[in-house]
Write a protein that binds this DNA or RNA. Structure first.
Lengths: 162, 162
DNA sequence: TCAATCTAGGATATCGAATGTCCATGATTG
DNA sequence: CAATCATGGACATTCGATATCCTAGATTGA
C-alpha cells in the first residue's frame, strides 16, 4: 500500500514553485537537480500535474513549469491525485458473489458492506489532504527551515528560472 | 496505492468467524471454498491474523480458526494491519537532504513537512478503521443480506466447522 | 497405534505495476 | 539556425503481490 515516489517529488516541486515569482518558470532539469531525482522520470510526474491543470508550461529555452493557480488554491489532494490517480486503496472483488449458497439470480442493491467501510476510511484520508494547501505547506516550511537555507535555495532556483 | 486482496479475504473470513458459535473452528479449506479464493494463499493471510493474536487456532482434523476475542473487541484496523503491515502509504525518502544548497552539517530536528502532512492523512485513515469493529460489520450485514441467504450460509459453514 | 487432517512456514514461480531510460517530435527562444 | 524545452511513446529493469508446492509437527478419531 504505497504511494509512488513521484508523489513525493511532485509535492516538493510544487512547494518550490509556490515560492516562484510571478511569470517565472522552472524546467524539469532544474527541478530534478534541486531534488536529486532522475530528470526523465520526474518529467512524467510533472506532465501529470500539467494534464491535471495544476501547472502552466512553456516551451523553448527559459521554458518550464509554474503553478497555474495561487498556492492557497491548490490542495495536497489535487497534487496527489494528479500523479497517483483516483483509485481507492481498497479494491472490492465482489467476493460475496462466490458464496456457494448464493442464488445466481440475487442482485445486490448496495456495494459490499466491507467495501463501504474501507471506502469511508479512504474518504477520511482524502478529506485530510483536501484541507491542506500549498500555502499551508509554505507557512510550515518558513518555521521549519533555517532562513539562510531558504534564501540560498531561492537564489539557486532564481539563477536557473526562465 | 493498493491494499493486498488478502486484506479483503481476511475481513470476510473474520466476518464469517464472527458468527461462529463458541468453541467451533473453521479450516482454511472451508473458508477458501466459501469465499472462492485459493486455499494456500488464503492460508498466509490467516497465519497473519494468528501471529497478530486476533484468532485462535487448533490443529488436526476438526481444527482451524476462530476469533480470539468477541467481535466487538476486534477492529477493522487490527485485521488490516495484521495482513498488510503497519507501514504508511507515504514513504519519505528525505529528498530535502539532496538540496545542493544544504550544508552537510545541517541536522533536522523534525520529519519533513511534506511527510508530516501526508502522515496526518494516514492517521485519519487509521482512526476511521479503528472506530469500526467486526460487530458493527455483523450489524450492517443483518440489514444488507437477505435472511434466508444468511441462514443457508450459516448452515453451510456449520456442516464444515470443527 | 495409525491414518487422515490440520496449521506453520520455507522455497519457488509468475505477473503486473513501479521505476527508470531513451528517443522522436514539435514549439520556442535568442 | 542552433540550443533548449515539454510531450509522449517505446522499452528495460526491479520489486512486491499473487500464487503454488512441499515438509514438518501437532492433533484427532477410528
Amino acid at each position: 500500500m504505497n504511494l509512488k515516489n513521484q508523489v513525493e517529488w511532485a509535492l516538493h516541486c510544487c512547494s518550490v514553485m509556490a515560492s516562484l515569482p510571478e511569470g517565472r518558470y522552472l524546467s524539469t532539469r532544474s527541478l530534478s537537480e534541486f531534488h536529486g531525482v532522475p530528470k526523465e522520470y520526474l518529467g512524467k510526474a510533472l506532465q501529470g500535474l500539467s494534464k491535471a491543470g495544476l501547472v502552466h508550461t512553456t516551451l523553448g529555452p527559459s521554458g518550464g513549469y509554474r503553478l497555474a493557480r495561487p498556492a492557497q488554491a491548490i490542495t495536497f489532494l489535487e497534487v496527489v491525485e494528479a500523479v497517483e490517480g483516483r483509485k481507492s486503496t481498497f479494491q472490492c472483488s465482489e467476493i460475496r458473489a462466490n458464496n456457494p449458497c448464493r442464488p445466481k439470480s440475487l442482485c445486490d442493491d448496495k456495494p459490499c458492506a466491507v467495501a463501504r467501510i474501507m471506502w469511508r476510511a479512504d474518504e477520511a484520508w482524502r478529506q485530510t489532504l483536501a484541507a491542506v494547501t500549498l500555502a499551508d505547506l509554505q507557512e510550515t516550511l518558513q518555521e521549519d527551515v533555517p532562513a539562510d537555507l531558504l534564501k540560498r535555495s531561492f537564489d539557486w532556483l532564481m539563477e536557473r528560472a526562465g
